[in-house]
Structure formats: structure tokens, C-alpha cells
């Protein structure tokens, strides 16, 4: 019995001039452009529509965002170098470069999780006398709110307000510390206690949506690159050209994900 083989997995089709996987990944990336384009448009409309002076600034840690940008740029360089190594038949160089790519993806996700945790342990507290403060609750609990405090019958909380009343001092410039002296606040005096999660403000909602979706893409891309680099590496011996094409297609996806970050970083962190 003769086995059917999918056509144009290595050689290009005459009508498109490309092998099928490349056409497929570009169609997929076109749909991704629409997805991120819609979210970017939402961001612009929300920002333009916000009342003057209400859009928050300096909430994010710019040095960490900068490091993450550098990490992703490095990973794009290593992805393309790994593909070039395969084209030059240098298997060990390919393995080395792609290992660095995977490491960069892990570093990026690690830093992103740190930034998220920082937001989930950073609180706004509003007191009955109308005073509003931002800062950290003693013990750095995640997702604490007034209902949880009451349910746990906690009589008071230790609170370390930010040195700058309007935002998170640790955040914007990355300086260490940045908190005023600790104080005790009675639960009975609190009218609102909320961490800086997506529900806190429109800005944080769009920030978590955009960066969360982007981080999922980084994770998915890293999984695919790892699968081709590790478990599926046997194809290199059987069909090196097809294997190289797989690396190119995963590299195209990776570049798209990195390019999205190149736009996300200035829009969310700087403007």
C-alpha cells in the first residue's frame, strides 16, 4: 500500500511560491494582527475617552519593562541565528541558540509574573473619613478585600503607604523602598480595600488584557520552539529541509510576538 504524502511541505507551490506551512503561518498571523489590532484600538479609544487627569501614570515598573524588551529582542536574534545555523548545517549551534531562546522566554515570563504579583499585592484603601491611600498591606497578601477581612473577623491591618500619594513609588522608576512609615488601620474605618488587579481601573483592565494575552503567546511560542528543539528533533535526520522549515515557521510566530511587545512597551509603560 502506498502512503499519501502531503504536497508542498518542503518544495514551494508554483502558484504561491511558498511551501504550505509558510502560507499557513502568515494567514494565522494575519488573524493575530486583527486580534491585537482590535485590542490596541480599544486601548486608544479608552484612553482618548477618559476624563482629563483620570488616566493613571507611573503605575508600571519601567526598568523591568526595559529589561523584558531587551530579553525579547535577544530572543529574536537567537531564533533567527538558530534558523541560519540549520541552513548552514550547523546542528550544535542551532541547539545552543534555541536553548537561549527558550531561556529568554522563561526570563520574560518570570519578570512578567513578578510584575503581576506586585500589582496583586499593591492596594488602594479608602477610609470612612474620605482619605484614600495606596500602599502595601503587612504580610503582602494577594487579592485581599474588605469582605475577606470581615469574613476573617480581622480587627485591623498593618498598612505601608506609598511615599508618593498618587502612585506606586517602587513602580515607575524602580527605586528600592518607596514606602512611608507603617500604620495600623481598623477594619471598621475602611470603606474600600482593593488590590491593583484588572478590576481596579480601566487602565489596569486593558493592561492585564493586553499583556496577559501577549504572555500567553510567549508561553505558547516557547512550548512550540521547545517541542521542535527537543522531542521532535528526530526529523532533522530524516528530512532536514522540512525540519528547517518548521524552525522558520516557529521563528515567524516568535517574531510576531516580539513585534507586538515592541509596540506594547512604549504604549503601556511610557505614554
Amino acid at each position: 500500500m502506498q502512503t499519501e504524502i502531503l504536497p508542498y511541505i518542503v518544495e514551494p507551490r508554483k502558484d504561491t511560491g511558498l511551501y504550505n506551512a509558510k502560507v499557513g503561518i502568515w494567514l494565522f498571523l494575519a488573524s493575530e494582527v486583527m486580534l491585537f489590532g482590535a485590542l490596541f484600538s480599544s486601548y486608544i479609544l479608552l484612553r482618548v475617552g477618559a476624563a482629563e487627569g483620570t488616566w493613571p501614570h507611573h503605575l508600571l515598573n519601567i526598568p523591568l519593562g526595559t529589561i523584558n524588551t531587551l530579553v525579547l529582542i535577544c530572543s529574536s536574534v537567537t531564533v533567527v541565528m538558530s534558523w541560519a545555523s540549520l541552513k548552514l548545517n550547523q546542528w550544535s549551534k542551532y541547539k545552543f541558540y534555541q536553548a537561549i531562546t527558550i531561556l529568554c522566554a522563561l526570563i520574560f515570563l518570570g519578570i512578567k509574573s513578578f510584575e503581576y504579583t506586585d500589582k496583586f499585592t499593591h492596594y488602594e484603601v479608602v477610609l470612612k473619613n474620605g482619605t484614600s491611600m495606596t500602599g502595601h498591606v503587612e504580610g503582602s497578601p494577594l487579592f485581599l478585600n474588605l469582605n475577606k477581612l470581615k469574613a476573617a473577623k480581622t480587627e485591623s491591618i498593618g498598612f505601608h503607604p506609598d511615599a508618593h500619594a498618587s502612585g506606586h513609588a517602587e513602580g515607575a522608576k524602580g527605586e528600592a523602598g518607596g514606602h512611608g512609615e507603617g500604620m495600623k488601620i481598623a477594619t471598621a474605618d475602611i470603606t474600600k480595600l482593593e488590590c491593583f488587579g484588572p478590576w481596579h481601573s480601566t487602565y489596569l483592565a486593558i493592561y492585564f488584557t493586553l499583556t496577559g494575552l501577549h504572555a500567553l503567546h510567549v508561553f505558547a511560542g516557547a512550548c512550540v520552539i521547545f517541542a521542535i528543539w527537543g522531542p521532535l528533533a528526530g526529523l532533522w535526520k530524516k528530512d532536514p529541509e522540512r525540519y528547517t522549515n518548521r524552525v522558520e515557521v516557529s521563528g515567524l510566530f516568535w517574531h510576531f510576538v516580539d513585534l507586538v511587545w515592541i509596540f506594547l512597551f512604549p504604549v503601556l509603560y511610557l505614554l
Binding site: 531564533v79 522558520e248 510576531f256 512597551f265
Partner: peptide, 18 residues
């Protein structure tokens, strides 16, 4: 567009950002 061409686009965007 190959990875080579896309990489050139990416490096250009990264340079402008830098």
C-alpha cells in the same frame, strides 16, 4: 516573506524603539 525579511522589519522597529 521569509524569516530573514521579517527579522529585518523587527530589527528596524527595535532600533527605532531603542
Amino acid at each position: 516573506m521569509s524569516l530573514k525579511a521579517f527579522h529585518i522589519v523587527f530589527v528596524t522597529a527595535s532600533t527605532l524603539l531603542a
